[in-house]
Amino acid sequence: MRILLFGGFLGSGKTTTILQIAKYITENKFETVALIENEIGEAGIDDKLLADSGLQVRPLFGGCVCCQITSDLITAVREINETIKPDWLIIEMTGLAIPGNIAKLINEYCNFYTGFKTITIVDMGRWPELKEILGPLVTGQVEKTDFVIINKADIEGNDKAEIIEDIKQIVSGVPIKVASAANKLPPDVIEEVIHFE
């Protein structure tokens, strides 16, 4: 089972991106995908959207905003590995989680995977404001990740080159792709996300 762990600030486009990647894997690779959806709030919304696309979704609701992961997630990953045994497990973290921190726990407690990658989605349109207001959180989401998708590139208004450069300063040595998931992710970006050596 290969694991893709998606992080990125609230509303950055994680669910939209995941939907396309999961669909691509099932339709083009003919492999199975299970999904863990970690949402904040009692009324789950994203899980319904994902389930409507025919994906098997395991929702994890956390009323607690600050604790980014509980033993529930580790239990869910183990359970899916033992029962459903999908080819891929996609985990969508809450928009307040730092993927690098969660990766440590996955590596420690779920190292039965055959491949593991963290992907951070950055909302290009809000990056300058979010960095100004919530600098440590949004830079923390980017700095320890294996892959960055700078999303919502179709939104006008900001200096795109400056934002891309800013992200490159935070995270170096990992692929950075600019895209607009709402308009459809290019297949080469998806291929790169799901590529393992």
Partner: peptide, 25 residues
Amino acid sequence: GIIVGHIKVLAKVSDEDFQFLSLTR
């Protein structure tokens, strides 16, 4: 003009018949 966070609304006329709306700006 931007939401520092997100606003999501799921509007359902039935369990399978719904619209999902998201606002970040």
